[in-house]
C-alpha cells in the first residue's frame, strides 16, 4: 500500500511539475524575441500587399497601397526599447537570427532604422501616386531592410 501510494504521489508530483513548467511565463528576454519576430511578420504581411502590386501579381490599387504603406509607417514609429534586451541575440536564443553585432554597434543599428523610417515615409507619400512610384519607393524600402539584414541578421536557409 505504502509503495503504491509513493508511486502515485511521485506520479502526481511529476504531472504537477510538468504543468508548472507549461504555466511558467516566458522570460522578458523570450517575450522580446517573440515580439520582434511578430513585428517582422507584420512588416512582411504589409510589404506583401505592396509587393504583389509592384511585381504585377495583382492589379495596382492606389488606396490599398496607401493603407499598407501607412501600416508600415505606424510600425516604424512603435517604440522598440523593450525589443533589444541584452542577452537576446542568436547566441542565447537558438531560433533568433539577431546577431550580437547589434549590441556592439547600437548607434549604427539605430541609424539603419532611421533610414528605414525615411524610406517608409517616402513610400507612404508615393504609394498612391501610381505604380511606377510605388515600385521605385518600395525598392528603396527593400534596400533599407537589406542594409540592416546585411550586417545584423544571421544567414539562414
Amino acid at each position: 500500500m505504502t509503495r503504491t501510494f509513493r508511486i502515485a504521489a511521485l506520479a502526481a508530483l511529476a504531472v504537477a511539475s510538468v504543468a508548472a513548467a507549461q504555466d511558467a511565463p516566458p522570460s522578458p528576454e523570450e517575450q522580446a524575441v517573440r515580439a520582434r519576430q511578430s513585428h517582422m511578420s507584420l512588416y512582411a504581411f504589409n510589404l506583401g500587399k505592396l509587393g504583389a502590386m509592384a511585381q504585377g501579381n495583382v492589379e495596382y490599387d492606389g488606396a490599398a497601397a496607401t493603407t499598407a504603406a501607412q501600416n508600415l509607417s505606424h510600425m516604424t514609429q512603435l517604440d522598440q526599447v523593450g525589443y533589444w534586451l541584452p542577452g537576446t541575440s542568436n547566441a542565447e536564443f537558438d531560433d533568433s537570427e539577431a546577431l550580437p553585432a547589434i549590441w556592439e554597434n547600437m548607434d549604427d543599428f539605430s541609424a539603419k532604422h532611421e533610414a528605414l523610417e525615411q524610406a517608409v515615409t517616402n513610400l507612404q507619400a508615393g504609394a498612391g501616386t501610381d505604380l511606377a512610384t510605388l515600385q521605385a519607393s518600395l525598392g528603396e524600402v527593400g534596400k533599407a531592410c537589406g542594409a540592416c539584414h546585411q550586417d545584423y541578421r544571421e544567414a539562414d536557409e
Binding site: 510589404l47 509587393g51 534596400k143 546585411q150 544571421e154
Partner: peptide, 26 residues
C-alpha cells in the same frame, strides 16, 4: 518569377528581405 524578383529587389516570396552577403549580391 519569384527567383527573378528576389535577384531584382531582395524580397523573398514571403516578403522577407535577404541579408548577409546576399544583400551585397542583390
Amino acid at each position: 518569377a519569384q527567383i527573378v524578383a528576389m535577384l531584382q529587389s531582395g524580397f523573398t516570396p514571403e516578403f522577407d528581405v535577404v541579408g548577409g552577403e546576399m544583400a551585397e549580391v542583390v
